[in-house]
Write a protein that binds this DNA or RNA. Structure first.
Length: 270
DNA sequence: ACACTAACCTGCAAGC
DNA sequence: TGCTTGCAGGTTAGTG
C-alpha cells in the first residue's frame, strides 16, 4: 500500500488530529513484535508527552514530542486511524491514547511495519536514504550520473531508496510510463534527456497521487478513514492485458523485475 | 561493492 | 465446495 503519497496523506491526517489532541496519555502494545521487536519498555517515556510536530522522511513517519520521538513505517498493510478510546479491531497492534478520549490505532495485518521510540537526533533507519524527490539535490544530472553506474533495470534502480526515496512498486511503473521509458531498460542506458523527463514525471505522479489522497488497493486508508482514489488514475499498474489508455492500440504487458510485478506499454515506452 | 533472492506475515483470489 | 498455490503497497539478511 504505502508509498510516499500514502504516507504523506497519513502524515497530514495525523498532524491535524495531533494539533487538537497533542498530549499522549499512554501507549499500549497488543503484542511484542511486528517484523522487529516493539519498544515495550520505552513506552513510559512518552506518558504525558506533548507532540510538537509530525514529519515524513521517505516512507517513514516521525512524531516529535517534547520527551522522545516516534518512528513509524507502514510496511505493506499498515494503517493509522483515529478511533474512540476503547475501539479495538483485529490486527490492531499499537494504541496511542491521547488526552481528550481519542486514540491513534496502528493496524497491520501482515506486520511488515516498524515502530520505535528513540531519543537520539536521527534514527539509524534513516541513515542510508537518498534525497527526497523535491530536494534540490535530486536533480536530473544527479539521477543521470547515478544511473550510469547501475547495471540493474531502471525500474529496480528507481525503487532503491538510496537513489531517491518514496518511489515504490506502483509509482515506479507509473512514472516510467509517463516518461516513455521501458522499465526493463538497463539503468545505464538512460540518456540525459530521459533523466530530465523521468525526474519531472516522478515528482508529477507523486504530487498527483498526494492530491488524490493516495492509492487504495485493498488496505490503505487515510487517518480519518477515507480511501484514496489515485488508483483510478493508474495508466499501467494492475492493467495487464487491458488496452493502453494513451495509444489505445496496444495491450499493457506485465513481467517481473526484482521480484515485483511490473507493467508497461511496449508501444508507448522504449 | 553491487545485484539478486528469500524471508518476514496474513488474506484473498484463482485454479484445479 | 474445498484444497493448494501464488501474489499483494516494503525492507533487509544472506548469498554469489
Amino acid at each position: 500500500m504505502p508509498e510516499l503519497p500514502e504516507v504523506e496523506v497519513v502524515k497530514r491526517g495525523l498532524s491535524q488530529i495531533l494539533e487538537e489532541h497533542p498530549i499522549i496519555d499512554s501507549i499500549e502494545f497488543k503484542r511484542r513484535d511486528l517484523r522487529e521487536a516493539l519498544p515495550l519498555k520505552k513506552a513510559k517515556l512518552l506518558e504525558g508527552a506533548k507532540v510538537l510536530s509530525v514529519e515524513r522522511r521517505a516512507k517513514y513517519l516521525i512524531l516529535n514530542t517534547d520527551k522522545a520521538r516516534i518512528l513509524s513505517h507502514l510496511g505493506m498493510t499498515g494503517t493509522w486511524r483515529v478511533a474512540p478510546r476503547g475501539e479495538e479491531r483485529e490486527h490492531d497492534h499499537i494504541y496511542i491514547n491521547l488526552q481528550g478520549g481519542v486514540r491513534l490505532a496502528y493496524r497491520d495485518p501482515r506486520r511488515f511495519g516498524y515502530f520505535d521510540i528513540y531519543t537520539i537526533e536521527k534514527h539509524p533507519k534513516l541513515e542510508r536514504l537518498g534525497p527526497e524527490p523535491w530536494d534540490e539535490d535530486f536533480t536530473a544530472d544527479y539521477l543521470y550520473q547515478l544511473m550510469k553506474t547501475r547495471t540493474s533495470p531502471i525500474k529496480v534502480a528507481l525503487m532503491d531508496q538510496a537513489v531517491v526515496v518514496g518511489v515504490g512498486n506502483i509509482y515506479a511503473s507509473e512514472a516510467l510510463f509517463r516518461s516513455g521509458i521501458r522499465p526493463t531498460r538497463k539503468a545505464a542506458t538512460i540518456k540525459r534527456a530521459e533523466a530530465v523527463l523521468l525526474r519531472r514525471e516522478i515528482l508529477q505522479v507523486l504530487e498527483d497521487a498526494i492530491a488524490a489522497g493516495g492509492s487504495t488497493i485493498s488496505d490503505f486508508a487515510q487517518a480519518g478513514g477515507d480511501s484514496g482514489y489515485f488508483q483510478n488514475s493508474f495508466f499501467v499498474y494492475g492493467r495487464a492485458g487491458l488496452m493502453c489508455l494513451k495509444c489505445k492500440q496496444n495491450k499493457i504487458k506485465e513481467s517481473r523485475l526484482g521480484g515485483r510485478s511490473t507493467f508497461w506499454c511496449s508501444k508507448c515506452q522504449s
